[in-house]
Design a protein around this nucleic acid. Structure first.
Length: 425
DNA sequence: TCTGGGGTCCTAGGACCC
DNA sequence: TCTGGGGTCCTAGGACCC
């Protein structure tokens, strides 16, 4: 086996959404803070202080209300405009340390640091951490290993260290450290695999690493053996520095309150459809298949539960909002049933392709196609300038009574002048 | 009363063909 | 009326991620 000389760092922002809110509100530093998901439904980011209080990730807000009240926990609704902007600043800073970088999520990136000498490695990652904090105000943890999975593991431990940094490349205690990671905390091991592994006596990352490869291959999918090999330092998941265009685009929302009327469902589907269409136009893509889905609350199964979806295979690829909304509403009407309390609707665009590939449509059914393309461009431009929904179609509704709850928003938008925080002098 | 949203990849099984 | 084997491609659904 070849000795793997890769050095992959995983930089992960600590309690990212909470850290973003703290940037503009220093009074909540060192206090318990949580950020809620859309519709103020679940806890999706917690400060260390909130974690200590026992608030779990993903827990519904109504279940932790008592803890929140008793401990004066600060609450925020999501503000993705803000988090996205801060994320871009963090990534831009990281890129200076390695052009070979893969943005893995809004708050994580893999960096290829193979060219850094071993003896300088630790110093180097401390410098990355310090720079990101200084330039963006966001605290991070950094783990480094010879594979992505090992860097994830290192990062997991780094999060608990005061230094915020763990180097598994130059470590002779890899097994010891991996023994501290429970099997369900290993990257790539989810609920199902955890159940299976524990049943077979594999309880930690170290157990999995030292398990016979033949056994893993036989009993799990390629996924399982890939993870185990990566823990041994054999690269199976390579770094992908080039951003790929998305292959699917989904826009869905839960309602702020239950909805029964077809008219209101129509408004929501039209709204989601417009947002999705804007997204794919922005990426210069067209769509071939759309799926519309509606459902009542899955948490009250059996009690008049209804969930259905409808696919429509478009005769011609398009990204024209008007055509797409029309199709989506037809799909909705075919699955709508009276008498249900709907909780969520959504739309999925799949088999997306680059627009250039199918630029010319011999059989286009849209009259004046050129004009329509110009119209879409005008809509997108106007909405960027004057805010989303400045220009819309009538089907999307005006009142949107069904719209989400967003009770605790910090209302900071770094791209909107009126919502910028003011500094008193 | 109140339970997020947006992705990717893998696999089994069906449809179809020779 | 009986009956084979092998291949490809597509899709739905599951598992996983943040």
């Amino acid at each position: 086996m070849l000795y793997n000389k890769n050095k992959i760092a995983l930089v992960d922002c600590n309690s990212f959404y909470v850290s973003c809110e703290r940037l503009f509100n220093p009074s909540i530093n060192k206090k318990p803070v949580v950020v809620l998901s859309s519709n103020d439904g679940c806890v999706i980011s917690r400060s260390t202080e909130a974690k200590i209080l026992g608030i779990k990730m993903g827990e519904p807000y109504f279940k932790v209300k008592k803890i929140v009240k008793e401990n004066d926990v600060k609450i925020f609704s999501t503000n993705f405009a803000l988090y996205g902007d801060i994320s871009r600043r963090v990534m831009k800073t990281l890129k200076l340390f390695s052009p070979q970088m893969e943005i893995y999520s809004i708050d994580e990136a893999f960096l290829d640091l193979s060219s850094v000498k071993n003896k300088n490695l630790l110093e180097h990652i401390h410098k990355i951490r310090k720079t990101v904090l200084q330039w963006t105000g966001i605290p991070t943890s950094i783990g480094i290993g010879t594979t992505k999975t090992l860097s994830k593991a290192a990062n997991y431990i780094a999060k608990k260290e005061k230094s915020g940094v763990i180097d598994l490349v130059n470590s002779n205690k890899i097994d010891e450290l991996l023994s501290k990671i429970k099997i369900n905390d290993v990257w790539g091991v989810g609920r199902q695999l955890t159940k299976f592994y524990i049943k077979n006596g594999i309880n930690t990352a170290c157990d999995l690493k030292n398990m016979h490869n033949g056994w893993i291959k036989k009993n799990t999918s390629v996924f399982g053996s890939r993870t185990a090999m990566e823990l041994r330092g054999i690269t199976c998941i390579s770094l992908e520095p080039h951003e790929e265009k998305r292959k699917n685009c989904c826009v869905s929302r839960s309602f702020g309150k239950k909805v029964t009327k077809l008219e209101e469902l129509k408004e929501s589907i039209a709204t989601h459809c417009l947002n999705a269409a804007e997204k794919i136009r922005n990426d210069n893509q067209t769509v071939k298949k759309i799926t519309v889905f509606i459902r009542t609350s899955p948490f009250h199964m059996g009690k008049n539960y209804y969930s259905n979806s409808k696919d429509i295979d478009l005769p011609i690829r398009t990204n024209d909002s008007i055509t797409l909304v029309k199709q989506a509403l037809m799909a909705l009407e075919s699955i709508y049933k009276k008498g249900y309390q709907y909780q969520k609707t959504g739309i999925i665009f799949s088999s997306l392709e680059d627009i250039d590939i199918y630029n010319k449509n011999l059989f286009s059914k849209i009259n004046n196609e050129e004009k329509r393309i110009k119209l879409m461009k005008a809509i997108d431009y106007t909405n960027i300038k004057y805010g989303r929904n400045a220009l819309s179609v009538a089907q999307a509704g005006f009142k949107k009574k069904w719209n989400i709850k967003r009770q605790y928003s910090s209302r900071i938008d770094t791209a909107c002048f009126d919502l910028l925080p003011a500094v008193k002098t």
